[in-house]
Every structure is written in structure tokens, then in C-alpha cells.
């Protein structure tokens, strides 16, 4: 089965290191989430994978062959990005036809169905659409192209809540009908947490989390209780942040707890959701832990 292997990718813009030694593997038929703060390097990473920019170092391979300037690899991936790559003067139907021409085929049935659901007119010009509808056009193309790797960079940019919900539903449905790999880069972690099977968190150009969603959530804890007790209980653990409210402190721990430590009666232990984990991991206290 086809997979994409990203090894030791680095990227410099001038003296600024945007990506540093990033390595990850994209397996077939999996939905990935790529989370990171603004400027963390998400878009740069996706642009490198899709051959839009070149890395300063490292390799992107599909089935052990370099994906850089490789038509076979490029024809098997699609990147929907924030930047509009289509001509403003072009009508939507023509954009779809061009996509079909280049990729060899196109799921017109799905595209027409989605256009109807999103209330998108195919004879409209791309440049005449709002930001939200620009995203919708690109989403429809992303779901209708015959590729095994689809990368969505901020896919719901400008979409209202109804359209966002519709997109998530359609994404899951099309994934069920034709499994393939999706990598979704977004800030709206809460919305896609239930969709994503595997998570990459990127902070300051480095991957800080690479693991299965379930395992990551299972290893994330909020320890709440009196300040002193919480500090004693979490001493030596991977504490990624804490809140203090009145006399109560909540410390967020990512990683294994010490099974030999008895949980004090005054301390409450809960799992942390992805969004909170992301916030604390990328607030400066993050340490790399394999999930």
C-alpha cells in the first residue's frame, strides 16, 4: 500500500528556521490532523509535501521514491491550500474540467451533488465568490479528485457553522465509500477531534506530538486539587501547564502517570481533550512525547 515518508525535513526562509528536522509517515486510508499555532510551519510542511516549495534539507518519498518533481507521486496527491491557485476569471465548471484533464478523471457525480448541497453555482466565476465559497470550491475538488492523499490546509476558512458541519459529514461519507488518506491542518481542533485518527502537533517548526488520537487523549491528564498536593503528585511528571483559581490548581500532564503514586483524596484526575492539550503544549512548555 502506498505511503508517504517525510524524513528530516527542514526549511529556512532567510535566517528563520521554519521547519527543523521534521519526520513523519502518512499511512494509507487514515485521517490525520495537523495542528499548530500560526507560523508553526504547517502550511510550509504541506507545501513541501505537495512540491510547491523546496525543502532546505530532508526528503519526501512516496513508496521509497522521491516525491519531488515526481509526476507519479504528484498525481496521487492533492493539496487544498489557503492560497487561491485558480484563475479568478474562470468558471467553476471549467476549473473542474481542468482538474479532470490533469488528473485523468474526476468524480462529477460527487462534485455536482456537493455543489448542490453547498448551494454553489457551477457557472459562477471563481473570482466572484466569497472567501467561504472559495474554500467550498476547493473542498469539492479535493473530495472529487482520484488521488490517495488529500491535504486540506485550513479547509473551513470562511465557512459558516452549517457548511462546516456539512463538510465534516461529507468528508466522512466519502472516506467510508472510498477510503484514502486525509491530512487536515486546522485551528478548529475541537470540531475535527472526533474525525481524526492520528495527530501531528507542530510547534516552532518541530513535531511535538505524533500519535493515535485515542492514545494521546488517554495519556493527557488534568490534575486538579489544592496547589501543594497537586505539585507533590505531579512532581517529576511531564507537566505542560497549569491553572490556578483561588486555592485550586489544575496541572496538565502529558505522558504516563506514575502508577506507584497513590492519588490523594483531594485530587481529581480527568483526561484532557485535544484542544486543551494543544494549547498547553504549544504555549512554551511542550516536550516531545511519542504517542
Amino acid at each position: 500500500m502506498t505511503q508517504i515518508q517525510i524524513s528530516n525535513i527542514s526549511k529556512k526562509f532567510g535566517h528563520h528556521n521554519v521547519l527543523q528536522d521534521v519526520s513523519l509517515t502518512l499511512q494509507p486510508n487514515t485521517i490525520y490532523g495537523l495542528f499548530g499555532r500560526n507560523g508553526a510551519g504547517k502550511s510550509t510542511l504541506l507545501n513541501i509535501i505537495a512540491n510547491r516549495i523546496f525543502p532546505s534539507g530532508g526528503a519526501v518519498e512516496m513508496d521509497n521514491q522521491s516525491a519531488i518533481e515526481n509526476d507519479r507521486a504528484l498525481a496521487n496527491m492533492f493539496l487544498m491550500s489557503e492560497i487561491d491557485m485558480y484563475s479568478e476569471r474562470m468558471k467553476i465548471e471549467k476549473i473542474f474540467k481542468q482538474t479532470e484533464l490533469c488528473y485523468g478523471s474526476f468524480d462529477w457525480g460527487l462534485a455536482r451533488k456537493l455543489a448542490q448541497k453547498f448551494d454553489l453555482k457551477l457557472d459562477a466565476k471563481f473570482g466572484g465568490l466569497s472567501t467561504g465559497y472559495h474554500s467550498i470550491v476547493k473542498l469539492i475538488i479535493g473530495l472529487s479528485v482520484p488521488v490517495n492523499f488529500v491535504f486540506f490546509d485550513e479547509p473551513v476558512l470562511g465557512l459558516d457553522a452549517n457548511h462546516r458541519e456539512l463538510f465534516y459529514q461529507e468528508l466522512l461519507q466519502t472516506y467510508e465509500e472510498r477510503p484514502r488518506t486525509f491530512l487536515i491542518s486546522t485551528h478548529l481542533i475541537e470540531e475535527i477531534a472526533h474525525i481524526v485518527e492520528h495527530v501531528f502537533m507542530i510547534d516552532k517548526g518541530k513535531i511535538v506530538i505524533d500519535g493515535e488520537t485515542e492514545s494521546i487523549v488517554a495519556n493527557s491528564y488534568a490534575v486538579t486539587g489544592p496547589k501543594k498536593t497537586v505539585e507533590e503528585y505531579t512532581a517529576g511528571l511531564n507537566v505542560i501547564g497549569h491553572n490556578l483559581l483561588g486555592g485550586l490548581q489544575t496541572s496538565y500532564v502529558y505522558g504516563q502517570l506514575d502508577d506507584n503514586r497513590i492519588i490523594p483524596d483531594t485530587v481529581k484526575l480527568e483526561h484532557v481533550d485535544l484542544q486543551k492539550l494543544f494549547v498547553y503544549l504549544t504555549n512554551g512548555g511542550g516536550k516531545h512525547v511519542e504517542g
Binding site: N51, E69, D71, L74, M85, C102, Y103
Partner: peptide
């Protein structure tokens, strides 16, 4: 932009 968006290499 159009070609790279549509999976076509520079070459």
C-alpha cells in the same frame, strides 16, 4: 500555480 495545483511537475 495551475499546474502544480493539478499534480503536474515543473518538468
Amino acid at each position: 500555480k495551475w499546474t502544480i495545483q493539478n499534480g503536474i511537475s515543473r518538468h
